[in-house]
């Protein structure tokens, strides 16, 4: 089955991973800007990173027939440095019209601090100013509940935002309900230990249905599995779910959400002409 991974950090993955993903049915992916495993020292470090996201990765993905899209921001962890964050936010408009940029992300909170919240709000201003979609990171482990509620408070207090253009990612059993109830899209991240397994993600699909729900691998430089979305597909089949529901979650929903961005120029694999005809 063709699928789209809506959240995967391919700058951290090998070219072999691109090949494996293509063979498992991945036809498109979106890569939010995130923490590189170390704090960058200047806005120029982010300029190079944004070039990697907008120039290098699309070409690397295209070698395997995968369409690559991206999101720009300074991530929540480095947002603790407000001065650096403001320099990066001021630079983002240089890249925002690159043809694979879908919006601002993954912004959010990490340790739920005042500085992180300040930078989050400034990212929202940027998104509104440039009419961008938003992809949001929610914190890990014991900080997730409080952080998700703080994020929802900030989003819901901003009447300028169209909630259907905002994806709140890394939801789990204790946060998914409120995200969907308030009209946002929700992303389930299939990530060992700190987030959600394919089995628990399918449990959430069974409880909440397939509307406004995405599943991603968040494959990055940490312990993660870039082929986690096919694992979800397999688990849904094992439980007897319909192919139409599986396709909705892993293919049609990402297209529906991303299509709200003018830069989502996705070409389905079966849209081309048949050379034999």
């Amino acid at each position: 089955m063709d699928y789209i991974d809506p959240h995967i950090h391919m700058v951290s993955r090998t070219t072999d991973d691109y090949a494996t993903l293509a063979r498992m049915g991945c036809v498109a992916m979106s890569e939010p800007a995130f923490w590189a495993g170390f704090d960058r020292g200047s806005a120029d470090g982010f300029r190079d990173y944004f070039r990697q996201l907008t120039e290098v990765e699309p070409k690397r993905a295209a070698q395997f027939g995968i369409q690559h899209f991206t999101w720009l921001c300074i991530n929540a962890k480095e947002a603790e440095n407000v001065s650096l964050s403001r320099d990066v936010i001021a630079m983002i408009p240089e890249f925002i019209h690159c043809k694979n940029v879908l919006g601002i992300g993954e912004i959010g909170l990490n340790k739920n601090t005042k500085n992180e919240a300040t930078v989050f709000l400034e990212h929202l201003d940027l998104a509104v100013k440039f009419e961008q979609q938003i992809l949001i990171h929610t914190p890990h482990l014991e900080d997730k509940y409080q952080g998700t509620r703080m994020i929802l408070d900030m989003l819901c207090d901003d009447s300028r935002l169209d909630r259907t253009r905002v994806l709140v990612d890394h939801v789990e059993e204790h946060t998914i309900d409120e995200v969907l109830d308030r009209g946002f899209w929700a992303g389930m991240t299939l990530y060992p230990i700190t987030k959600c397994t394919p089995a628990r993600a399918v449990d959430m699909i069974e409880r909440f249905g397939g509307e406004r729900l995405l599943a991603n691998s968040a494959g990055d430089w940490g312990p993660s599995k870039p082929t986690a979305v096919p694992d979800l597909i397999f688990e849904m089949r094992r439980r007897g779910h319909s192919e139409s529901l599986i396709r909705k979650v892993v293919y049609e929903n990402p297209i529906e959400f991303f299509s709200q961005s003018p830069n989502f120029s996705f070409t389905p694999r079966d849209a081309g002409s048949d050379p034999a005809s």
Binding site: N112, K114, A117, T118, L121, L141, E142, D143, K144, Y145, Q146, R149, M150, D153, E172, E173, H174, T175, R200, D203
Partner: peptide, 25 residues
């Protein structure tokens, strides 16, 4: 039917609803 959600809440920090006032944001 919600043991997983209960466990998640049990392992989470409480939501502090006055966080904006406390942080002066």
């Amino acid at each position: 039917p919600d043991r997983a959600e209960q466990l998640q809440r049990f392992f989470s920090h409480e939501y502090e609803k006055d966080w904006r006032r406390d942080m002066e944001i």
